[in-house]
Amino acid sequence: MSDFTGRAAEVEELSRYLRTAGESGRVPIASISGPPGVGKSALAHQVAHLLRPHFPDGQIYVHLAGMSDRPRGITDVLGEVLAALGVELGHVPATATGRTALYRSVLAGRKVLVVLDDVSGMHQVDPLLPGTPGCAVMVTSRTHLVGGAGPRIV
């Protein structure tokens, strides 16, 4: 991306860490946090673009609007993601728990990068974590995320 400059150290750190997907037996999770307007989303997009060859089964991008007046509901988000992954509407469970289980089953054995943008807390992240070590997750948030699966903070 020719309009992206700076943040070389962060790009390298994120890229190196997320490329470890599948090596450690766990899903690497990186969290980019900071105040509004510092370029968290731009950094995530740049890194995702650079990592495309390392995740041949695709990338999933979800804007969760976590800091807006109307954060997106996880049940709806999971329904949209499952549809994008090719699951027919009639096969999508009604509950968030059921959708999370199906989402993880659909991603099993795949190498996918999941980008979760504008997250308010780990409660929005946890249901969207793949269960397959070949996947990786990158999260952007205005808040310092703690708990859950323990993301690496950038």
Rank of each mutant, 00 (worst) to 15 (best):
T97Q: 12
I29C: 05
A44M: 14
R52E: 07
G147E: 06
V115N: 01
V77M: 05
S68F: 08
E10N: 13
G90H: 09
R26E: 15
E12T: 13
A83W: 05
E88Q: 09
A96D: 05
R70H: 14
G6Y: 10
L113T: 14
D76V: 10
L78H: 02
A30N: 11
A96K: 07
R104H: 01
P35Y: 13
G148M: 02
I60H: 03
M122V: 14
L129T: 09
E80S: 13
A42D: 06
D117M: 09
E88N: 02
G73K: 06
G79V: 02
C135H: 04
G37W: 08
V87F: 04
G86C: 06
I29H: 00
V146P: 03
G34V: 08
P127Q: 02
G73N: 11
T143Q: 14
T95W: 03
L82W: 01
R26W: 13
H63S: 14
G25V: 09
L51E: 07
Q124A: 09
P151K: 01
R70T: 14
G109S: 09
A101H: 09
M122A: 09
L145K: 00
S33F: 12
G86V: 02
E23T: 13
L14N: 01
D118I: 03
V77C: 08
S24P: 00
A84R: 15
I29K: 00
A108Y: 05
S15C: 13
R52W: 00
H63M: 08
T20Y: 06
D126C: 00
A83L: 06
S68A: 13
T95M: 11
D69K: 10
A149N: 05
R16L: 14
P53F: 04
V114M: 04
L107M: 07
E12P: 04
G66C: 10
V119I: 13
Y103Q: 06
P71C: 09
P53T: 10
V112E: 00
L102F: 00
E13D: 15
H45I: 15
R99N: 08
A42H: 11
E10V: 05
G22T: 05
T97F: 07
T100M: 14
S24G: 14
H63P: 11
L85F: 07
G22C: 09
L113A: 05
T95L: 08
M67R: 09
L128W: 00
L64A: 10
V11K: 06
A42R: 14
A44E: 04
G34C: 11
L128P: 01
L64W: 04
V119G: 01
M1T: 07
S15M: 04
M138I: 15
A136R: 00
L89P: 04
P133I: 05
L14D: 02
F55T: 10
H144K: 13
V119C: 07
I60Y: 02
V77Q: 03
E13S: 11
L18F: 13
A8D: 15
